[in-house]
């Protein structure tokens, strides 16, 4: 079967690369094709998700949660069936807002194995539990 493709984007102008890079590496090692786009605007994230025909969109969220929420809305309206997950330094109240939009959220300290398991679930490689 073809490898599943995941977009890894950063919302907001933020120099914290370590988190998304480590997560991308773990996903790569789990057999995913991970497309890195780095810091991107809402429009750029949507365009990349479409052009790259990904199976899952990952957002590394830094700072302004509003920017991230707008990106989520834009992806969900352009690609209605697209699953999303997110991580980064997200305050608890913001995690709830993201979860309310259907995202799985991984704050600092999350285990990479849990993130990979989530990617497997969200791309249909393992069944929902």
């Amino acid at each position: 079967m073809r490898p599943k493709r995941i977009l890894m984007a950063k919302t907001g102008l933020d120099g914290h690369w370590r988190g998304p890079t480590i997560v991308a590496r773990a996903l790569r090692d789990a057999g995913f094709e991970v497309i890195m786009i780095g810091m991107a605007t809402t429009n750029e994230i949507v365009a990349a998700a479409v052009d790259e025909d990904v199976d899952l969109v990952g957002l590394n969220i830094g700072g302004h949660i509003d920017v991230a929420l707008r990106a989520v809305d834009a992806v969900q309206s352009t690609c209605p069936d697209m699953p999303l997950f997110a991580g980064g330094t997200i305050p608890p109240h913001a995690c709830k807002q993201l979860e309310a939009k259907g995202l799985e959220v991984f704050p600092p300290g999350s285990a990479l194995t849990d993130i990979v398991a989530s990617a497997n679930r969200l791309t249909g490689l393992s069944s929902q539990q």
Partner: peptide, 22 residues
């Protein structure tokens, strides 16, 4: 490149692209 071990890949060319012309 894809990994010969896992089949996974880190596709990183987009990171260098200036998106303003997109």
């Amino acid at each position: 490149p894809s990994s010969a071990v896992t089949g996974g890949a880190l596709l990183g060319d987009r990171v260098r692209i200036d998106y303003r012309h997109f």
